[in-house]
Design a protein around this nucleic acid. Structure first.
Lengths: 221, 221
DNA sequence: GCCACCGTAATACCCGGGTACTACGCTCCT
DNA sequence: AGGAGCGTAGTACCCGGGTATTACGGTGGC
């Protein structure tokens, strides 16, 4: 029997998950949490096999909760769920130690098999995200084929680093530099440095143009 | 027996709604639609008492679908649901002829009583939105009754004027206030006035958030 | 071991963006 | 005729955003 803890701030969503899971005879819902702090506390208490973790929750969000649960060292696996396809948390969620990442518009069957997968130690990622993840990791490979523009770099054309992409993604959420600093645990000056480099590389005059670019290139939206 | 059509692009969400509704012995789900076009077509076919309508759907969105259903002239009532407390939708949704407006993080009981309310011809609005709506409508009454809330008029829910929409559209092109002024042959101060009103009405903190809203609502992009 | 790159951070400065308030002419409606 | 809403415009003020520059620890490649 796989024990599951549901962490989602929407009661209706929790209800749906619970109904779906309880309809399976190899699963049982041992608890519901409405935010990250609750999820962390209840995990330490109940030691569920799997935590079904929503990303966007008030207070402590799903990413940070995942990090704490994973650092807790138990055998609990975290399966992250999000509403949108290209969530800015995709990478940081997996980096935080999540065992899987599914989008909420998945078929119920997909969710169930995802839970079973992570419960048995496998990892699972939504098909719609797989390609992007691959792209991101390929991006880390040695650029043997790509000669470095040693002459005059012309910042444009230079691809954004992972961190810069992450920052651009949250800029696309409408966050201010101060908010980005807080939520990413950075100094505001650091955020400004990143933003400056993003603008230079993308040829944007200000963050508005950068956000537009992010939307046009489907990085967000 | 109240017949309900569920219109939501997320299968999981539909599943949750269906389970909740079917657990009530005075309700039955007669169909599920994954987008606005489907919802419109199925309503014409099935004549449900209530359509549970999600706002954000691919293709024809919930607002436009509501408008068409209401214009269709049947007895079907539309109850709009949205994930976010986004006032822009609330207003245009009710304008489109919806009988109610609930946010998705409502308690299941709240949703059920909402469905029963609109099925019997009543209107229903999420408590979190009620005050704003009242303010907005009072705002439209003869000024005698309304002592002009000079403190916080709360312009949200007021639709953008043509000019404001135009300005928002060019803001979405990444233009600065100065550029907008030049190309539209206006004084910069005028542009600032418009921008300020746009931000107030859309509940945006700055132009970045306004541009994001423009993209999300397909005004640009 | 050295060098390039990345991520972090700080400082100082300037300017555009946003707020608050006031105002005036035009149009449409009653 | 009067009022409401719209588009226009101005002033004064403050703050966040963006620029320029410097710097330092870690990592990975050669």
């Amino acid at each position: 029997m796989t024990t599951v803890l549901i962490a989602d701030d929407q009661p209706l969503q929790r209800f749906g998950f619970r109904m779906l899971l309880e309809s399976q005879d190899d699963m049982t819902v041992v608890g519901e949490a409405a935010n990250g702090a609750e999820a962390t506390r209840m995990t330490a208490e109940l030691h569920p096999d799997v935590v079904l973790m929503d990303v966007r929750m008030p207070g402590l969000d799903g990413i940070e909760a995942t990090r704490r649960i994973v650092e807790g060292g138990g055998r609990t696996r975290v399966l992250i769920l999000t509403t949108f396809d290209l969530d800015e948390y995709a990478y940081s969620g997996l980096r935080a130690g999540a065992s899987g990442f599914l989008v909420k518009d998945a078929q119920p069957e997909e969710l169930l098999s995802g839970i079973r997968a992570v419960a048995t130690g496998d990892a699972v990622v939504a098909p719609s995200l797989t390609r992007r993840l691959l792209d991101a990791y390929v991006h880390h490979l040695p650029a043997a084929t790509q000669p470095k523009p040693s002459g005059s770099p012309d910042a444009r054309l230079t691809p954004l680093t992972d961190r810069e992409t992450e920052i651009l993604r949250v800029m696309g959420q409408g966050w201010t530099n101060t908010e980005i600093a807080e939520r990413l645990h950075l100094a505001e000056s650091t955020v400004k440095t990143h933003v400056g480099r993003i603008l230079a590389k993308t040829g944007s005059r200000d963050r508005v143009q950068a956000v537009i670019l992010a939307y046009e290139t489907k990085l967000v939206g």
